[in-house]
Design a protein around this nucleic acid. Structure first.
Length: 591
RNA sequence: GCGCUUGUAGCUCAGCAGGAUAGAGCGACCGCCUCCUAAGCGGUAGGUCAUCGGUUCGAUUCCGAUCAAGCGCACCA
């Protein structure tokens, strides 16, 4: 992580940053608290004052507000009167103005001073602006995406992939070391079925031509035919048994199916711009489960119940965890226990994340509970990051019911639409194809990340690939416009100087400036809440403020503030690009 | 039945540890390209913040109950 130069921190940035002991920063908030303290004396402590401060709804009301309600009892006066008295007595030294409005004392920061500091900081730090040290370089494995072999990646997998990817970027910015793990669904009785189906109806040539679809076809056909021919199930079980025993043919087919599937997954991951550090899926833990069972036995946690081996979790108010089935086979949670232990040993993580749909909440509660029973203190560092369901027509997506939305098709549709937009709006654009990819895919990713994780959403193609309003392309467009202005300036010989006078004080630029200043706090919040939507919403706000700004202010005008305006535009471009980057969305320079 | 999640404008959603007249986008209606890309900007219309109680000087925000929706509830993952 970039070494941090604390002398360049801004007022607002310090709100969310750890503060070195020997230096005292006059944060803007501290200035407000100090000014209030000077008037109020011991009536309220500095901490209480800071706590009471709020951000007015509109910048027209100031940058900070102090509500006087809490003082009404102490002084036995109306809050309005108290606010007026405070405003009358307070030192205006560091502020543009301090005024009472009703029961509030509103503080307006010194705009020139503030813009100077904030713009200088962003220009100096560039993409590193907003970096912070929350993680002390600790490892954080992220279990994400995790599609099933021999099935296509659907919209359902998009969420886990894209949320996990964004969290990885956010964690890295906060000085954690994310490790992206694709916990592939590459084991289980379905592979017995698949092999049997392939042996009966499949051919090598067919699979090579279109692996996923053919494999899926075999699998679906198997399920149709085994209704009339239950003996197929016995064959499938036998094949899976062979697989478990390491039978050569079974292993060869399994490996082949797996690698073909992976190849087609990689095409999609490449489109999405997502890379993984590990593809260790369920099969990988196959030989690591005996140990878990042994440990559970040694700790006398295992009980027999209805012929199965379970860990009782009644004291956690949870259903028992099924470790071994009646036939001795292990289950989902057994594998996840093995995986958790493996990850702890391999990465010695400070946190371990699982980006998995909210319908699996109970499973992860059980997982943590069993680890706790095992006496593993790091059980508390395991976090399930749940997210809402994507439905279609209000119903859960289901391969069997025919409600599948193939991610690849959605991405292709989005890119095609972006291509058409470019032809219509900017036909002379260079590298159109690349921009179409970035915009189309960006729209899909952004749409998924802009709302709170837990919200369900009903799939609607027009909505997902929309380019107007609160969308990824809107943010990308704002960034492209900023870059365009900078290019024109550079062509005229006006470069953004790293050290200059960046004094701006008009209302439109002030809105942009306070958004820029809020970025580090947003990063922190997004990390703490594991919530990429914080960044997406932030990017929309900044883009909106900037669009308004340049619609009303001519940037390229030769006057004393030209340098300051260019610094503002450059800072906006930097922060917008970094915001999109944190979401896993590209920011083309032109579009 | 029990548990988890959700319930804010016609639609999709914001509303950051309770506070100033509840905000966006889409859709509707009306404006703005001799001026840095109109994927943009501005304006109008539209809400008993599911319901009922409680805590509080103050509740969309916290607590409880009710109603509605989604998802789970041991030998699938």
């Amino acid at each position: 992580m970039v070494p941090r130069d604390f002398s360049s921190l801004t007022f607002l940035e310090c709100r969310s940053f750890f503060i070195p002991k020997r230096r005292i920063f006059m944060r803007s908030e501290e200035l407000v608290v100090k000014a209030l303290k000077d008037v109020l004396g011991d009536k309220l402590s500095a901490a209480e004052l800071q706590q009471a401060l709020e951000k007015p709804k509109s910048l027209a009301l100031g940058d900070f507000a102090f509500p006087a309600f809490s003082l009404a009892k102490i002084f036995r006066k109306a809050p309005q009167q108290i606010a007026a008295e405070i405003a009358g007595q307070i030192s205006q030294a560091h502020f543009e103005k301090v005024q009472a409005v009703g029961p509030y004392v509103n503080f307006f920061l010194n705009k020139s001073e503030f813009s100077q500091t904030i713009l200088q900081t962003v220009l100096q730090q560039g993409q590193a602006y907003g970096n912070q040290d929350l993680g002390a370089a600790g490892n954080v494995p992220i279990d994400m995406s995790s599609p099933n072999i021999a099935k296509p990646i659907s919209m359902g997998h998009l969420r886990s992939t894209v949320i996990g990817n964004s969290l990885a970027k956010l964690l890295r910015k906060a000085n954690y070391r994310p490790i992206k793990i694709n916990h592939l669904g590459d084991w289980g009785t379905q592979f017995g079925k698949l092999i049997e189906a392939y042996k009966l109806w499949g051919s090598e040539a067919e699979v090579k031509a279109d692996p996923i679809n053919k494999l899926l076809e075999y699998y679906v056909r198997f399920h149709k035919e085994d209704v009339a021919h239950p003996e197929l199930d016995d064959e499938a079980r036998a094949w899976f048994k062979k697989l478990e025993d390491g039978d050569e043919e079974a292993m060869r087919l399994w490996k082949w199916f797996r690698s073909e599937s992976l190849k087609s997954f990689m095409k999609i991951y490449k489109k999405l711009g997502v890379e993984f550090d590990s593809f260790n899926g369920e099969a990988f833990y196959n030989d690591k489960m005996d140990e878990i069972v042994t440990i559970l036995e040694e700790k006398q946690l295992l009980q027999e119940s209805r012929g199965a081996q379970i860990v009782d979790l009644e004291k956690y108010d949870l259903n028992p965890a099924l470790i071994r089935k009646t036939d001795g086979a292990t289950l989902y949670i057994t594998r996840d226990l093995a995986a958790a232990l493996y990850r702890k040993r391999t990465y010695n993580f400070v946190q371990s994340l699982y980006v998995v749909g909210n319908e699996q909440t109970n499973h992860f509660k059980q997982l943590k509970a069993v680890l706790k029973e095992m006496g593993e203190p790091w059980a508390d560092e395991i976090h399930h990051i749940p997210f809402g369901l994507i439905t279609q027509g209000g119903k859960k997506l289901s391969t069997r019911a025919g409600r599948v939305i193939l991610l690849e098709e959605v991405l292709d549709d989005a890119v095609e639409l972006a291509r058409q937009q470019i032809e219509a709006k900017n036909p002379n654009l260079e590298n159109k194809e690349q921009v179409a990819e970035e915009v189309g895919v960006g729209a899909v990713i952004f749409h998924d990340l802009k709302n709170e994780r837990m919200n369900n959403f009903d799939f609607n193609l027009e909505e997902v690939v929309r380019f107007e309003g609160e969308t990824g392309p809107y943010v990308q467009y704002s960034h492209a416009r900023a870059m365009s202005i900078l290019r024109k300036a550079a062509a005229a010989g006006d470069k953004v100087a790293l050290a200059g006078t960046y004094s701006l004080n008009d209302p439109d630029s002030w809105e942009v400036l306070s958004e820029i200043a809020a970025f580090p706090a947003m990063v922190k919040r997004a990390v703490n809440e594991y919530e990429p939507s914080v960044i997406a919403k932030y990017a929309l706000h900044l883009a909106k403020a900037f669009n308004k700004y340049y619609a009303h202010t001519k940037v390229l005008q030769d006057d004393v503030q030209l340098g300051a305006r260019l610094a503002l535009v450059k800072s906006v471009a930097t922060v917008l690009k970094e915001s999109l980057n944190l979401l896993g969305v590209h920011a083309p320079d032109r579009m």
